[in-house]
Design a protein around this nucleic acid. Structure first.
Length: 575
RNA sequence: CGGGAUGUAGCGCAGCUUGGUAGCGCACUUCGCUUGGGACGAAGGGGUCGCACGUUCGAAUCGUGUCAUCCCGACCA
């Protein structure tokens, strides 16, 4: 492709509305343009990158035995009502009505549609196992789209769905996908970590995420997930799912007598601990949440934090948030108290389900809110002063240096970008939607399903997050829009132009994806642009052409040599 | 959803306090000059100042409303 004809607009400056480097660079280098909030145009260079990633995904999916199909982007509400998700998916589901006022939605994922396909098309166990996938735009009306392609509302996704006769079959299908994913990301030039994860709104039991780790201190936290991992045994998990051994801290308070004492203005654990001059770990914290519209009190040791996803899962909820002050007021009124946040305790709460984290059950002579402002109960003990809740679960957020659940060594934490995920769905959708097949013994059985996603556009952005320098993008070869760029330093110099054309045409003949910068620009502009758009190899034709020499350089800068044009061509062909 | 900020040419911004009919840099067009790291000179084209209503002889500027965008928060008991 000739740069003079390529439709691309590189910018001198970073866009003002971009925060993370992949967003800044993709806009500045002319790969994407924002159409509206969270929705982007993929310009010609970007589209080439996306197609590269897609074809790697296709190859590996096809090799793993999966079959590609394409499902509609617009879906009818009835399917979502069947699965029960129409009411629980929330505002992320973009709903619309057609001209007959029929309820429709834009597909954020395709479990419902694929399940309807399976129940119509798969009758017998003889047709199983089967894995169907598609590559398509998805739409999720995110609360807060940001970070360019990393969290857009419209994005390109590969989603695959497996159908098996039993759990063992699912285990195999799941493993096949896990292996395929490792190969896909490796081929894309991305190092990923497969971590345990919560299965979220998609549902199901087991799930893993493929994370691109981005923890360089210079990065602007493009990683939206915290990943905890153990360097010794390999345990790794998303913070929403991570577990750890209980750490040993002081759990017995100094108070020998239980009494309510004045603790003025101690609205936080920190303030309370300082005021009483005690460790935070002998305070029992009581937090009020709203899970699917119902009030929930979570008890946890003062030195630890609640992991909201874990808490939500205790109640099999779909939505969780901390209670507002007016809601706390409502609970207090109903229970006959008047305390504000900071002085809440579990005793006497009405219309509130209570759950305790494992950390609180060993507390003795501890401190706890008593629903009276500016007062706390000290020297409290379970069963004596306060009842230990029946529901006890692990609802705490793991912290760095907690001990690994498997081997006891210290856990580390890092930021990650989730580029892929795999779920064991089981019969969650097939049962609800009555999708069954006839088994060997003539019995009707629901499909055992799995689903597997890869964010194609997010993978591209993640690649930029991991591979760039101060001059621009450094694409991994496998997903670069072009392999090599030929730059004649001066378009006025006939010999330079002639040699550049020669190299360009030779490479074209050999089907190499090559750019020729034939623009009437000064050298600086052309070299800056070549770096910015991140083409892996550059052949620069300058004054040394008099001695039949050109410069051969990798974008990463680890190989720079001066060789003959034909050697440069040979070198490219050998890569 | 709560808090903060911003909307002026394709991009980045100034002008607003103190109203007088819009400007700078980059990009774009033409000419000259220049060609190994985003040159220089000259001459051009491009904007209902987010939108609506209001105040005023007069509004980018003041007021009200509205829409959009960006950031932060959702670990506080």
């Amino acid at each position: 492709m000739r740069m003079s004809k390529l439709f691309v607009q590189t910018l001198r400056e970073f866009p003002s509305d971009a925060e993370v480097i992949s967003h800044k660079l993709l806009v500045r280098a002319g790969y994407i343009r924002k159409l509206t909030n969270g929705i982007y145009n993929y310009m010609p260079l970007m589209w080439r990158v996306l197609k590269k990633i897609e074809s790697i995904v296709r190859e590996e999916m096809d090799n793993s035995g999966a079959q590609e199909l394409l499902m509609p982007f617009v879906q009818p509400a009835e399917l979502w009502e069947e699965s029960g998700r129409w009411d629980v998916y929330g505002k992320e589901l973009m709903r619309l009505k057609d001209r007959h006022s029929r309820e429709m939605c834009l597909g954020p994922t395709h479990e419902e549609v694929i399940t309807s396909i399976a129940r119509e098309g798969i009758r017998s166990y003889k047709q199983l196992p089967i894995n169907l996938y598609q590559i398509q735009s998805k739409f999720r009306d995110e609360i807060r789209p940001r970070f360019g392609l990393l969290r857009g509302r419209e994005f390109i996704m590969k989603d695959a769905y497996s159908f098996d006769v039993d759990e063992e079959g699912l285990d195999k299908s799941y493993q096949i996908m896990a292996d395929a994913y490792r190969r896909i990301f490796e081929r894309c030039g991305l190092e990923t970590k497969m971590v345990q994860s919560d299965s979220g709104a998609i549902g199901g039991s087991v799930s893993h995420e493929f994370m691109v780790l981005v923890n360089e201190e210079s990065e602007n936290n493009a990683g939206e997930n915290d990943v905890f991992y153990c360097t010794k045994c390999g345990y790794s998990a998303n913070s929403n799912h991570a577990v750890s051994l209980l750490n040993s801290v002081i759990t017995v308070g100094k108070y020998t007598k239980s009494e309510i004492i004045d603790t003025p203005n101690t609205h936080s654990i920190d303030e309370l601990a300082k005021f009483l001059n005690i460790p935070e770990s002998i305070i029992c914290k009581c937090l009020i949440y709203v899970v699917d519209g119902k009030y929930v009190a979570a008890l946890i040791r003062g030195d630890r934090a609640v992991e909201e996803t874990k808490l939500m899962n205790v109640f099999a909820g779909n939505d969780i948030r901390i209670a507002r002050n007016d809601e706390i007021e409502e609970i207090m009124q109903l229970s006959g108290y008047s305390a504000i946040a900071g002085f809440i305790g579990p005793k006497g709460l009405k219309n509130v389900e209570i759950v305790a984290d494992e950390t609180v059950k060993d507390l003795k002579n501890f401190v706890i809110g008593c629903n009276i402002n500016d007062k706390h109960l000290v020297g409290a003990n379970w069963g004596v002063d306060v009842e230990l809740p029946v529901k006890i679960a692990d609802i705490r957020l793991v912290e760095e240096n907690d001990k690994c659940i498997n081997c006891g060594s210290s856990l580390k934490v890092t930021k990650g970008i989730e580029v892929g995920n795999i779920f064991k769905l089981g019969t969650k959708y097939s049962k609800k939607m009555n999708a069954t097949f006839t088994d060997k013994d003539g019995q009707e059985k629901p499909f055992i399903m799995g689903c597997y996603g890869i964010g194609i556009s997010r993978t591209a952005a993640a690649a930029v997050e991991r591979h760039h320098d101060e001059n621009g993008i450094i694409w991994p070869l496998a997903i670069a829009p072009y392999k090599v760029i030929v730059v004649p330093v001066s378009d006025q110099d006939e010999i330079q132009m002639k040699v550049a054309e020669y190299i360009y045409n030779k490479l074209l003949e050999s089907k190499v994806e090559v750019l020729l910068d034939d623009r009437a620009e000064r050298a600086g502009v052309k070299l800056k642009d070549a770096d910015l758009i991140g083409i892996p190899y550059r052949i620069t034709v300058g004054k040394t052409i008099k001695d039949n020499l050109v410069e051969f350089k990798t974008r990463a800068g680890n190989i720079i040599e001066t060789i003959s044009p034909d050697d440069a061509i040979a070198k490219i062909l050998s890569i």
